[in-house]
Nucleic acid binder design. Structure first.
Lengths: 163, 163
DNA sequence: GCCCACTTCTTGAAGGTTAAACTAGATGGG
DNA sequence: CCCATCTAGTTTAACCTTCAAGAAGTGGGC
């Protein structure tokens, strides 16, 4: 970082500040809503959602971590907690003896079914009810671009001389 | 929540998922970058930035918490840590004996000065270098709308019969 | 002047997250 | 077959966040 930094323009600064405030406030809001209504933080809820949508309601740990964009370590802790709650169960993977499947239990599914409407309502109220369909489209496109740029890269992409 | 839930449309679902992924990945990315280069998480860095921009580089605890969108409790812990680092100092507020000012020290300012370029570069690379100026404008507008809707409301707004 | 309700800020405990180290099993070249 | 190397997942300890409770100060109504 020896070259002169390119500071943010006025518009970029305003956007960045708004981004930080909105994302902080929303994540807090969702955490509070779900902690109150479902007894777990937002990230944990997201794990149950992913499992509920997977074939046979089960996923390999690494795959779940990849989809949810969290580390395997964090997932290990999270699943341990969800298992204590009886909402997820661990199961040996038949094809790879190192592997574990996280399986959504019926109880876990019931919790999800019960709390999903309230959660959707909260998300709507915070985001979709305030934006025009056009803005929803713009936001989606922008977020896809950002997410794509932040995916853990193929190692070789950082080492072009190896390609 | 007794009425039939209005689920998200296809477009809304895609946008929501992209939003979750992008914000999760970006926050992680910034935390890692700042932990590595500045020895503190992103939120703590943001506190130093706010202080650096305040008159006399100091702010009342409550005001700083309000600006940074975090709880006072969290701020207390954070400032305690930053104080141990020598980057912030606490000071009694002259006009209100309950109050404390958080003051950015010269050391704290130096850390900021040293790490700001790298941080801006990271933000640019993750967001602004990937978006058109038009998209930056759209994102800013959308985030302002969301943040506004999530501000802790004036109590009376929830109690119209008291107005 | 005296209450009482409110604000400011801190604390402690419980729970969540991170980074690094570790166990166990898979994999592929020689 | 053997071994180095890689991958899957867990664990530990340090750190961070949250919630509830509490100490201390303020200020309006009487």
């Amino acid at each position: 970082m020896t070259t002169a930094p390119r500071w943010l323009s006025e518009q970029e600064q305003r956007t960045w500040r708004a981004y930080l405030q909105a994302t902080t406030l929303l994540e807090d809001h969702l955490d509070r809503q779900l902690q109150r209504d479902a007894g777990m933080p937002h990230v944990y809820y997201g794990l149950l959602v992913q499992l509920s949508q997977a074939p046979e309601r089960r996923l390999r740990m690494t795959e779940l971590a990849r989809i949810a964009k969290i580390t395997r370590s964090r997932l290990s802790h999270a699943v341990a907690r969800l298992e204590r709650n009886g909402w997820v169960r661990r199961e040996d993977c038949p094809s790879d003896r190192r592997g574990q499947n996280a399986v959504l239990t019926d109880e876990g599914y019931a919790v999800l079914k019960q709390t999903a409407p309230g959660h959707v309502a909260t998300v709507r109220q915070a985001m979709f009810d305030r934006l025009t369909p056009e803005q929803v489209g713009q936001l989606g496109e922008i977020m896809r671009i950002m997410a794509e740029g932040l995916q853990p890269q193929d190692t070789d992409a950082d080492l072009p001389w190896l390609r």
